[in-house]
Every structure is written in C-alpha cells, then in structure tokens.
Amino acid sequence: MENKYAIEANALSIYYGSFMAVNNVDMLIEAQKITAIIGPSGCGKSTLLRAFNRMNDFVPGCHVTGELLMQGKNLYSKDIDPVEVRRKIGMVFQKPNPFPKSIYENIAWGARINGFKGNMDELVEQSLLGAALWDEVKDKLQDSAYALSGGQQQRLCIARTIAIQPEIILMDEPASALDPISTLRIEELMQELKKNYTIIIVTHNMQQAARVSDYTAMMMLDKEGSRSGTVIEFSETKRIFTNPKDKRTEDYVTGRFG
C-alpha cells in the first residue's frame, strides 16, 4: 500500500551545536495509527518529536543529519518550506497554550493565515466537533479562551490544530498538566482522531502509552555515560509491554529502571 507510512525517519540525528541530542533514529510511522514515544526524562523524546515538524528550527544551533521523509520528500531538504511542513504536521503542546483571543478566533486564525477561503463558521464548528468541545462552548464562541478549564483549553488546542487540516498531529505530553478526568477525555478523543489523522505522542506515562497507542518507540540514552538519546526498540505496543526484545526496555516498563 502506497500510503501505509505517513512519515519515516532514516538515520535521523539531531544536534544542538556540536552536542548530539538524538542519535541515529530509524522509524516508520504508520498512517492513521497512534505511535507513542516513551522513555526516561532527558533522553530526547521531545527533541525527536519537535524534529518531525521542524519546530527545532527556532532553537539556535540546532540541526539534523539523516532524512525525514513524508510522501517521498525529505522534510529537511533545502527546497522544503518549514512553514508548510508545520501546517501539515500540527502540534499540541505540553501545557495548553491557547491564544489570548476568543474561542472562535483561536480556531479561525490558523486557517485564515494559511489561506482558507471556505465557510469559516462551518470550519470552526467542525473543528470543535472533531475535538469533542462543541457542546461545551457552542454558546460562548466569542468568550476568551482563557476562561476555559485546562482540559477544555487543551481540546481547544487540538481543535485549532485540526482546523488547518494536517496529516499528522504531534502531541508532546498533552495530558501531563491535566487532571485524570480531562486526561481520559483527551485519550478518548485520540481514538476518534486516529480515524483521520496519524498521531505521534510523547508521554511519560507508560500506562497511557499502553492504553492509547498502536506502536511504541522506546528511547534511552544510547550508552552508559553518553548524553545522546536513541530509539532502542520500536514495535507494536502490545509487544513492547509484554515481550520486549531489549533488556533495558523490559526493565523500564516493569519499573526496574534506574
């Protein structure tokens, strides 16, 4: 199948200046599936995730080697537009970060600047429906987004992301700042979203990875004393949690790590 993989990393390494943060990652991310990236803190999970939509461009001195392929194109080649990459690979951040504007504007802005010419009201409604937020906010679209609860704000951020119709949604510990109920709603939402989008999620929470994802990548510092992280094992989630190949993965998922 031609479009089985939404994005693939080939020998991808990420550097901050001369320091290698992520070492030589190979990953095939299947389309319309949820892929989780887990691992101890400081092993480069977020750095890797941010490499997928070139958010690391804003970090001075950050550069990559290797390839990141989307539909056969290397996203890091010179003729690729990073702005367009970010539009097609949306991102949801660790802490909800709505714009200090109305709920409506939060969603409409991204679409507008990207040249959306269709019916904006319809887009806003559909996006909010898609993020399971419509029923809660349909009567107060002009209210400030800051008046929403943390969980609602995070779903608003998801709605904002799907409004620009990306192919892939990156989520950087999207529920880590939320209470358990809100977390549950986000996880349910992810199952809905994967019908239309490919999702890559970084999480600290192994249970969460086990609950929501189809595939899991286990990241760790590549060797004792080094500070570069790498993917040590990548396969179906079920397998990572029940029958890992790598001893370190087993230690980590069973809580014997460190």
Partner: peptide, 23 residues
C-alpha cells in the same frame, strides 16, 4: 511575551511575521 504563544502560532503553520504581527 511567553514562548508558548509563539510555538502555538508556529504550530499552526504561521510564518515568523504572522506570529510577530498577530501575537
């Protein structure tokens, strides 16, 4: 102005100037 706001704007495909001007 917090960085999270800039990231939010870049995250939905804004250019640098759009981010600066609107946010």
């Amino acid at each position: 102005v917090p960085d999270s706001l800039r990231q939010a704007a870049y995250g939905v495909g804004a250019t640098r100037w759009q981010t600066v001007w609107h946010h």
